[in-house]
């Protein structure tokens, strides 16, 4: 009898667990350069979720310019979570499609930005054009590669970083700052729609002298193409880029994925999530892990969006809306 029980009991338990377990599919709609980060993170999360709940999670990723991705979600792309380049794009999803509440940014720590980044310069090996800071980027004869701020979150951060530098340099003289970025965009021969496209333009197509890049994207280019091809130049001042994350409530509810979607984003704040972010050259919020990976990140003065531009809503309306400053200064 005991032998029979020994055989049957594990079988029954296994069957019960198997019967209770389910497979959940999650779509993470993200911005351009996060492919590698989320590939690694997803693997870790799937293991974590399986151990915690017994459920299998299949995570799909979608990447593109942050603004374009937000518009796709507004147009019906069924994202369970969004991990975009800037808060304004998630605000747009909330306002235009009413898929999540307006206070989404208060749900998670640090304004729902589990990691940060900034904008740096990627130049060709040996830095033949001697680019050291933003002043060098606007010099005549320097060809600059950066994506289109209308469609790319990274490009908006880059634009604002240049603008913030100019404001600091000219004592917050807005006219001079505007002229500064105008000079910069005069040097831009190609506007890609997303950060990854600009990396291709610069690194693979051999165009331009400097790429205004996400810090993580610049490091990735070094890893992928070799440190003998490019080098990173850290400007004296840049902007603290805060890419936020959010559950798309209505879609997740409809899919029955609310719990796993929340778990997915919460796990970004865990030690393992923060480690993965740091390894992929995103600046972690966790100070201990940030200290551990300090060598990955240059020290520079970082201004915040709120300090220099008030808010994303204001920055968007002033600079990137149709007829805004960017439209006025950029002549293709």
């Amino acid at each position: 009898m005991k032998t029979v029980l020994k055989i049957l009991l594990p079988l029954v338990v296994t069957l019960a667990v198997t019967a209770g377990a389910k497979e959940v599919t999650l779509l993470n709609v993200s911005y351009d350069p996060t492919r590698e980060l989320y590939q690694e993170y997803n693997t870790a999360f799937v293991k974590y979720w399986k151990a915690r709940t017994g459920d299998d999670v299949v995570i799909s990723q979608s990447h593109g310019g942050s603004g374009k991705q937000a518009q796709s979600v507004i147009n019906g792309l069924e994202a369970d979570v969004v991990t975009l380049a800037l808060a304004y794009d998630i605000d747009a999803i909330s306002q235009k499609a009413d898929l999540l509440s307006a206070d989404w940014q208060k749900r998670l720590p640090d304004n729902s930005t589990p990691y940060t980044s900034t904008i740096v310069f990627l130049v060709r090996k040996g830095n033949p054009k001697h680019i050291k800071d933003w002043d060098d980027v606007i010099r005549p004869g320097v060809s600059v590669v950066v994506p289109n701020p209308k469609t790319s979150g990274g490009a908006r951060w880059a634009y604002l970083a240049a603008y913030a530098y100019a404001l600091e340099k000219y004592g917050h003289d807005d006219a001079k700052a505007r002229d500064f970025v105008k000079q910069l965009y005069k040097n831009v021969p190609v506007l890609d729609s997303g950060a990854r496209g600009s990396t291709v333009t610069f690194a693979q197509r051999g165009i331009g002298d400097v790429l205004l890049a996400w810090e993580n994207e610049a490091h990735l280019a070094l890893k992928e193409f070799g440190a003998d091809q490019f080098e990173i130049v850290t400007p004296s001042l840049s902007i603290l880029a805060e890419p936020p994350v959010a559950v798309v409530d209505k879609v997740a509810k409809r899919h029955g994925t609310l719990a796993v979607a929340r778990g997915y984003l919460d796990y970004l704040y865990s030690d393992e999530g923060q480690e993965i972010a740091a390894k992929n050259f995103y600046r972690p919020r966790n100070q201990a892990i940030a200290a551990k990976y300090a060598a990955n990140f240059s020290q520079l003065k970082l201004v915040t969006l709120d300090q220099e531009f008030g808010s994303w809503t204001k920055a968007q309306a002033t600079h990137f809306a149709d007829g805004g400053v960017f439209d006025q200064i950029y002549q293709p």
């Binding site: 060809s143 021969p189 190609v190 890609d192 729609s193 197509r205 051999g206 165009i207």
Partner: peptide
């Protein structure tokens, strides 16, 4: 060369 590359990239985009 840069101009050709840029034109080429524009066409690609």
């Amino acid at each position: 060369d840069q101009k050709i590359r840029i034109l080429d990239r524009h066409r690609e985009l």
